[in-house]
Design a protein around this nucleic acid. Structure first.
Length: 572
RNA sequence: CGGGGCGUAGCGCAGUUUGGUAGCGCGCACGGUUCGGGUCCGUGAGGUCGGCAGUUCGAAUCUGCCCGCCCCGACCA
């Protein structure tokens, strides 16, 4: 492809509303343009990268035995009403009416639509297993789109759904997808971790996220520095350490005056006791009931775990008035001893010996508090793990990382199939409910995620598998021998199926080099009179930071050398 | 939805405090110059100052309402 024919408008300055690296670079390098909040146009190079992602996903899905379908984006409300999601989904759903006033919406996800297809077309155990997927534009009226392609209101997603006769077979399908996903992300050249995740409101018995590790990621995950254990911070756990002393020897509780000492740090230094001896007591509201959560002083409450322990959808921090009302003391002096309401105690807090906690009396704390003796409550894992906490599987230290969720696989069970009556007849002629799984990959998000992980100060550094072009020829000068060499190289590369961009613009060399770095094609070849005099062209991988470090390759061998490099980089 | 900020030429910004009819850089067009890491010089085109209403002799500037966008939080099968 000749640059002069291409729509590839690069920008020296980024639009001010772009913040994340991928957002800035995709705009500057001419891949996308903004149309509205969370809505983007893909320019030619943007489309090329999107297609690369799609085709890797397609190849691996097909290889795993899945079949491609294409479901509509425009959906009548009846399907979501059937499962209750017409109401549950709330404002995230883009709702529209047709000319007759019938409710429609734009599909944010397609469980209902695919389940409807399944209940009509899958009738016998002989019809399973089946795995159907699509690459579709999804619509979600996100409360806050951000980061360019990272979180859009209109975005491309691959969603797959498996249908099996029972839980065990469904798990086999789930495993096949897990393997396919590792192939997909490996091929894309991404650094990622598969992590255990919260299956959320959707339920089901298994769920794993594929998190691409980047500093700008919005999710936190804990991963073992030794073994394979990795989990979203929402669910990551770490065992409570054994008791430091004999709880039987804890003296009787003792009230101490701690005027205006509220925070753990304040009381800790005031009393000269380490934070891990404290029992931090926080009040939450769960379905209008005030509950107390107790964690060790050096730990933080994990609200998702707390909600799960309580069996509610979500919890909120109690207001100062609620705290006053529930404990009879100002904020900062709550404690579990004598607390009348529901009590949830973190397992680490429960193993504290001779602890310190609020006295439920303003300006007072209690010393010599012994969990189990002085108070009891539901013991559960309700705290967030910290960097260095022991791994639940092998005891080695856990690391905390940030990531972007690029894929998510769920074992759905019969959540949708039972609600929608998707049943089949087994080999005894008995009616059974289809067991489902669903598997998503954020296709357009992956474009941005890849840039987040693959860029430097000069621009994008695409992995070969996703790059819009594999080779970028920078033509310097218009001398006949330069033109000829460029043409020869271009033809030879294209003959080998290599996608080449030729910068044939009438621009100064500096402009072309800057743009080449910005656009981020993995291999750059400079063809100019200077190197040509000695019969060569200059080869430089985009990943090489030193602009002077180029390799001179004889023109006659250039195409073969480049083809070999492309192969190597794809095999990576 | 809560908090903060922004909206002036395609992009980045100044001008708003103190009302007098809009400017700079980049980009774009033309001429010249230069030619291996965003040359230099000159000329030029391009703006309902987000919208509506109001105050005023006069509004980018003051007031009110509305719209859009960004950031933090909440939210995110």
């Amino acid at each position: 492809m000749r640059y002069r024919r291409l729509l590839l408008p690069t920008l020296k300055e980024a639009p001010s509303d772009a913040t994340s690296a991928s957002h800035v670079l995709l705009l500057r390098a001419g891949y996308i343009r903004k149309v509205g909040a969370g809505v983007y146009s893909y320019l030619p190079l943007g489309v090329k990268v999107l297609r690369r992602v799609e085709s890797i996903v397609r190849e691996e899905m097909n290889r795993a035995g899945a079949q491609e379908v294409l479901l509509p984006a425009l959906l009548p409300s009846e399907y979501f009403r059937e499962t209750g999601r017409w109401d549950l989904y709330g404002e995230v759903l883009f709702r529209i009416k047709d000319r007759k006033g019938t409710d429609y919406h734009l599909g944010p996800t397609h469980e209902e639509i695919i389940t409807d297809l399944a209940r009509h077309e899958i009738k016998s155990y002989r019809d399973m297993p089946k795995n159907l997927y699509q690459i579709q534009t999804k619509f979600r009226d996100e409360p806050r789109p951000r980061g360019g392609l990272l979180r859009c209101r209109e975005f491309s997603m691959k969603d797959a759904y498996s249908f099996d006769v029972d839980e065990a077979r469904a798990r086999t399908s789930y495993e096949a997808m897990r393997v396919a996903y590792t192939h997909i992300f490996d091929r894309m050249g991404l650094t990622y971790r598969m992590v255990n995740a919260d299956s959320g409101a959707i339920g089901g018995s298994g769920s794993a996220e594929f998190q691409v590790l980047v500093q700008s990621g919005e999710d936190f995950l804990a991963a073992c520095t030794k073994c394979q254990y990795a989990a979203n911070l929402e669910v990551a756990s770490s065992p409570a350490r054994p008791r430091a002393a004999d709880p039987e020897k804890t003296p009787a509780t003792d009230k101490v005056h701690t005027p205006s000492q509220r925070s753990i740090e304040e009381v800790s230094s005031f009393l000269g006791a380490a934070p891990d001896r404290f029992l931090k007591s926080l009040l939450y509201v769960a379905e209008s009931e005030v509950v107390m959560a107790v964690v060790r002083g050096d730990h933080e409450v994990n609200e998702i775990k707390l909600a799960r322990a309580l069996g509610v959808a979500e919890v909120f921090m109690a207001s100062a008035e609620d705290v006053q009302k529930a404990t009879g003391a100002a904020v900062g002096f709550a404690g579990p001893v004598g607390f009348a309401g529901k009590l949830v105690v973190d397992q680490s807090a429960a193993s504290v010996v001779d602890g310190i906690t609020g006295a439920n009396l303003t300006d007072y704390h209690l010393k010599h508090v012994q969990p189990g003796r002085d108070f009891t409550g539901q013991v559960a894992d309700i705290r967030s793990v910290r960097e260095g906490d022991p791994c639940p599987e092998c005891g080695s230290p856990l690391g905390i990382y940030r990531g972007i969720e690029a894929g998510h696989i769920f074992l759905l069970g019969t959540h949708y199939s039972s609600k929608m009556g998707a049943t089949y007849l087994d080999d005894k002629g008995e009616q059974q409910t289809i067991v489902m799984g669903c598997y998503g990959i954020g296709v357009s998000r992956l474009v941005a995620t890849t840039v987040e992980q693959h860029h430097d100060q000069n621009g994008i550094t695409w992995p070969m598998a996703l790059a819009p072009f594999q080779v970028h020829i920078v033509q310097l000068g218009t001398e006949p021998e330069v033109e000829a060499a460029v043409g020869e190289l271009e033809r030879a590369l294209e003959a080998q199926g290599i996608d080449v961009l030729v910068d044939d613009r009438d621009e100064r060399p500096g402009v072309k080099f800057k743009d080449a770095d910005l656009v981020g094609v993995p291999l750059r070849v400079t063809v100019g009179a200077r190197a040509l005099k000695s019969g060569g062209v200059e080869l430089k991988p985009r990943s090489e930071p030193d602009p002077k470090k180029v390799e001179i390759v004889p023109l006659a061998e250039a195409a073969a050398t480049l083809a070999e490099r492309v192969r190597q980089l794809l095999a990576h």
